[in-house]
């Protein structure tokens, strides 16, 4: 059986690293036009918040998570899962990365386009 040289392996892995870095740079530069945050629980859209219209901070309580809505940004302020990854992801503003809580199936993302029938409200 043909063997692969270490050099070839290193080139392949280096290429993968460079491609990933470029992808990350591209992802970081993508900004959404609208500041429409969507909150999904178990795949269902439960809240839509227009972050540009938020003047005072408030929280949205979900069964396992608390979401902090602030002017222009949104974050997960607490979750009952052990890893707390979603909380440590911090605030999102206009970027492409969603906040996700895998154990509780909660996702907060900035919508790609406006015009979705907004299910606002439900402050608690």
């Amino acid at each position: 059986m043909r063997r692969i040289s270490n050099k070839a392996l290193l080139i392949i892995f280096a290429a993968l690293l460079i491609a990933s870095a470029v992808w990350i740079l591209i992802a970081g530069s993508i900004k959404q036009d609208e500041l429409l945050a969507e909150i999904y629980v178990e795949g269902r859209l439960v809240h839509t918040v227009d972050l540009s219209e938020v003047t005072e901070s408030y929280t949205i309580n979900l069964p396992h998570n608390t979401i902090l809505v602030e002017p222009g940004q949104i974050s997960m302020s607490s979750a009952d899962c052990p890893d707390q990854l979603c909380v440590r992801q911090g605030v999102i503003k206009s970027g492409i990365y969603p906040i996700i809580c895998l154990p509780n199936k909660v996702e907060v993302r900035i919508a790609r386009e406006s015009g979705i029938d907004a299910v606002t409200g439900g402050r608690s």
């Binding site: 999904y40 492409i96 895998l102 199936k105």
Partner: peptide, 8 residues
């Protein structure tokens, strides 16, 4: 999660 954005 039904969330394609995770691919980022």
């Amino acid at each position: 999660m039904d969330s394609p954005a995770l691919i980022w």
